[in-house]
Computed example of a mutant assay.
Amino acid sequence: MALNNTYDARLVQQETALGAGVQLLLLALLGTAIGMGPAGWLTGLAFALATWAVLNRALRRSRPRSFGPANRVTLGRATLVGGVTALVADSFRSSPPVTLLVGLTAVALILDGVDGKVARRTGTCSALGARFDMEVDAFLILVLSVYVAASQGVWVLAIGAMRYVFVAAARFLPWLNAPLPPSTARKTVAALQGIVLLVAGAGILPHPVTTALVALALATLTWSFGRDIAWLHTTRNRPAPRLAVTDTAPARRPVEERQTV
């Protein structure tokens, strides 16, 4: 039943249900291939259920005309991230097949540059798409940091946790919710985290070199957050500029200016 002239709830929900089904299929394939244990299965299933529930809630609130091609790409990335999450959870039981984990992660990172281009070319940029893309990116970095921390130390968790700490701080410091100006440096630093964590997780470099690379990634991320926080603090009493929201929004764009998922 359509809720209005442009929003077909049933059609949109079918898309998210299909995404959940593909996620379950991927988990089944992984489970069969590597003999995944209970931790991997439960974590993967929890990820699939949470993604489906949160995405449906966001779609009901934003009421888009359709799910859209760009969101389909992002949902595909989320499916791969769900597979990576299951493998990382299972890695605490036994060593996962590194090639499989690296392969899923690499495809997810490559597709990160696709959904935004698809959105612009099809004229389907939206606040929901930007938020969906951002959350998938942030969660992948968090999962990778957990995996790399097992070999490098708990300090690596700071990479994955930093964005969530920023969001939590914004709840108590409203000026952190002000829009940030576009920044190539911010995008570059964000992309660097995934690449470095992927290389670190692959274990192809000597341990000291890997440690140095991950430390450099953390240092650049700390600098990027610090620079943005300083800018927000300096300009907090100025009128907030109006920024267009696109599917290539930086991973730390303020939470309250976009549709909450």
Rank of each mutant, 00 (worst) to 15 (best):
T51C: 13
V54S: 14
V54C: 15
L55R: 14
L55H: 15
L55D: 14
L55T: 15
N56Y: 06
R57N: 15
R57F: 15
A58L: 15
L59C: 03
S62P: 01
R63Q: 13
R63A: 14
P64V: 11
P64H: 12
P64A: 10
R65K: 13
S66H: 09
S66P: 00
S66F: 07
F67D: 00
P69I: 13
P69H: 07
P69W: 09
A70R: 06
N71M: 01
R72F: 02
T74M: 02
T74R: 01
L75N: 10
L75G: 04
L75Q: 14
L75D: 02
G76L: 09
A78F: 06
A78W: 07
L80C: 09
L80S: 07
V81M: 10
G82Y: 07
G82L: 06
V84T: 08
A86Y: 08
A86M: 10
L87C: 00
L87E: 00
L87M: 07
A89V: 09
D90V: 02
D90R: 07
S91T: 08
S91Y: 05
S91P: 03
F92D: 01
F92S: 11
R93Y: 01
R93N: 08
S94K: 09
P97A: 04
V98W: 00
V98A: 13
V98H: 02
T99H: 08
T99L: 15
L100V: 15
L101N: 11
L101S: 11
L101R: 13
V102C: 04
G103N: 07
G103L: 03
L104M: 14
T105K: 07
A106K: 03
A108Q: 10
A108V: 08
L109W: 02
L109R: 03
I110Y: 02
I110L: 14
I110A: 13
D112L: 09
G113D: 04
G113A: 09
V114M: 05
V114K: 03
D115M: 11
G116C: 10
